[in-house]
Amino acid sequence: MRALHALLRALRTRRKHPETDPIATPDHPGLADLLDAARAPATPEELAGEHEMVAAFVAHRRSAARSERRRHAKARIRAVLVPATTGLALLILTGTAVAARTGNLPQGAQQHAHSLFSALGVPAPGTGTPTTPSPSRPGPRPSLDVTALTWCQAWGGADRPLSREDRRRLSKAAGGEKHIGKYCRDLHRSASASPSPSAPPSTPVTPSAPPTPAPLGPSDPVQPGLPATSEPVPTATPPSKPGRPTHTGKPTDVPRGTGKPSKSREPKKNTDKHNAGSPGVAAPTTDSAERGQPE
């Protein structure tokens, strides 16, 4: 009966003061006993598990600290690895860019690079410093004479400096850096004396090479062949080695240069250089070699 009264009172109170909670402090003695019992201080039984739980806490902290250390170590490794990898990638990219700029990429890659970045001065394959792999790929490898001859031309003052690798080979073939000049001179002389042997192997390889030069110099049988040896790709390359035919006609010790600029495909600076160097062989050779080397 009393409980019913309490209920009704509670309902009334709630309606009037929704924020207050009158039943939280009940005046019902039985209920108060019950709540007191439920709120009683902890028994030893309830607190029995303290040691276990604190041990679990300590163990977890220890393992967490370990994994934290491990994570720090990983972060440190990452801190070293990322810049190293980036640097390496940059180095590779730069190397490739330099190779493309100097025309030393493999044939296909160079062609691709040229089509993409010709505005940045990436040359078409074969117009840059002649490299050994390119002539060797498409057909039978030309004799050392021809290869060395192209090296000599590059070394002596072509538009682009000789690549380091080729320079090394050239100096090896000549028997030392100092002998390159003499070696090249001898090579030119011997090549102009017996021009034919180098021509045949490479002529069939390049389809576009023969037609172009043929009308220009019909009297010179060597002319089409020689450029073709070093330019296996059917681009506008044939004129790049036209210097050769000129000396074949005059087997003197002025083997180079004068004829080259006449073909008009080469850049202007090239022309100037060769014109200046035309009077003598020895002088321009060393001069341009010195100029070319530091690049």
């Binding site: 509670a10 909670d21 939280a24 039985g30």
Partner: peptide, 27 residues
């Protein structure tokens, strides 16, 4: 919060009606 208040109140009311508590009432 309102639902919590109502549930609390109803719970206490129901406890007050519990036979064992009613027997303790006079203690």
């Amino acid at each position: 919060p309102g639902a919590v208040r109502i549930a609390t109140m109803r719970g206490l009311r129901r406890l007050a009606l519990h036979p064992q508590i009613r027997t303790r009432e006079g203690v």
